[in-house]
């Protein structure tokens, strides 16, 4: 399934907004910062996000990809998903 960056980004942002009113109310979505550091997701939230990305985009995320370098911001997640789709 070919997907483009904007589409993936909007799906991820929409999903994150659905569980998090504070995030949903932001004027500007932080695309390059760590959501864990900003407090917008908790530890279970990380698992939930990985499960969602794997299911929704029908991809497999490897263990060594769930780190700050590859998973540490929305744009990094977008790049990861697009590279696998």
């Amino acid at each position: 399934m070919a997907v483009d960056n904007d589409e993936v980004r909007s799906i991820i942002v929409k999903y994150l907004k659905s569980g998090n009113p504070l995030f949903a109310r932001l004027d500007e979505i932080p695309l390059d910062e760590s959501l864990l550091e900003l407090g917008y997701i908790d530890s279970f939230g990380v698992i939930d996000l990985v499960a969602f990305l794997e299911g929704n985009f029908n991809i497999q995320i490897l263990d060594d990809e769930i780190n700050k370098e590859k998973f540490g911001s929305i744009n990094k997640m977008v790049a990861l998903v697009v590279s696998k789709s």
Binding site: D42, S43, F44, G45, I47, D48, A51, F52, E54, N56
Partner: peptide
Amino acid sequence: TNEFSSERLGFRE
């Protein structure tokens, strides 16, 4: 209700 959300969701949710 999203079919791909995990069973446990996030703690705060």
